[in-house]
Amino acid sequence: MPKLSQWYIKLAFGYLLAGFTMGALLLAHKGQPIHPALWSWLPAHIEWLLMGWTAQFTLGMAFWIMPRFWKAPRRGNTNGAYVALVLLNAGVLLASLGPALRLSPWALIIGRLLEVGAAVAFAHAIFPRVVGREG
């Protein structure tokens, strides 16, 4: 597994833990009230598990297992995938903490823009590797 995939997947595991922890608190709160402010963390719970865990894990796996080139560099130009890692995680943090901490609405908008940037950057890096056996 390449180093960059390791980063994606370790960060995804971090969001899995954060998302399940918040989800457990919210579920327990439904059964036995803990604190009313917990509900403001529902969007963060969703963001961490959808984007931080599932989407990030998928990108890490894609970078690892998509076909490689016959000649070095075997995974092509990887800059876009590195940029996507940074943009995605900055975006997830902004889009989740913005609503939860009642920051400016711009936090959510900028977070989403960063996530779009991550998608474009990763697609730019991975498209040349979406090929058949003949290349």
């Binding site: 399940f20 922890t21 989800g23 608190l25 036995q32």
Partner: peptide, 16 residues
Amino acid sequence: GWGLVVSAVLQWLAAV
């Protein structure tokens, strides 16, 4: 409600 609390703990432990 206590069932939901137990459910939350079980799923959290699974993830950990």
